[in-house]
């Protein structure tokens, strides 16, 4: 089943993105790609079984809500995080209150 292989490849992309990315926002994107790939694997598994299996569908729905919650928290933390090397127009490192 092609979608299972696709899930594996997406997992690899997400993982490499997580480790190579400099910007924290990109790390959040990578984590989202990672979880999307796991969900894809689950649903591809459900597609293969006979009769069609609803449990992975429900699990993935729950997982999507959990992921969006964690993404929201991660983004909220991210915008409060000082980013190393960031400078303002005058070239001084910026202070965050």
């Amino acid at each position: 089943m092609m979608y299972m292989v696709l899930a594996g490849a997406l997992f690899g992309i997400g993982l490499s993105g997580l480790f190579s990315a400099r910007h924290p926002l990109r790390k959040v994107l990578s984590l989202n790609v990672l979880s999307a790939s796991v969900f894809l694997l689950l649903v591809a598994v459900a597609r293969q079984s006979e009769p069609l299996d609803a449990v992975p569908h429900a699990i993935v729905l729950t997982g999507i809500v959990v992921t969006v919650s964690t993404t929201a928290v991660a983004l909220a933390l991210l915008v409060r995080l000082p980013i190393r090397g960031r400078q303002d127009a005058a070239g001084r490192p910026k202070e965050r209150p």
């Binding site: 089943m1 299972m4 292989v5 899930a7 594996g8 490849a9 997992f11 690899g12 694997l41 591809a44 598994v45 459900a46 293969q48 079984s49 006979e50 009769p51 069609l52 299996d53 609803a54 449990v55 992975p56």
Partner: peptide, 21 residues
Amino acid sequence: VLGLLAVVAWQLPTPGLGEHV
């Protein structure tokens, strides 16, 4: 790792819980 994952995923028997549901 990717190759390993692909081979494994390809061979999953996927019994599932469809009948139970």
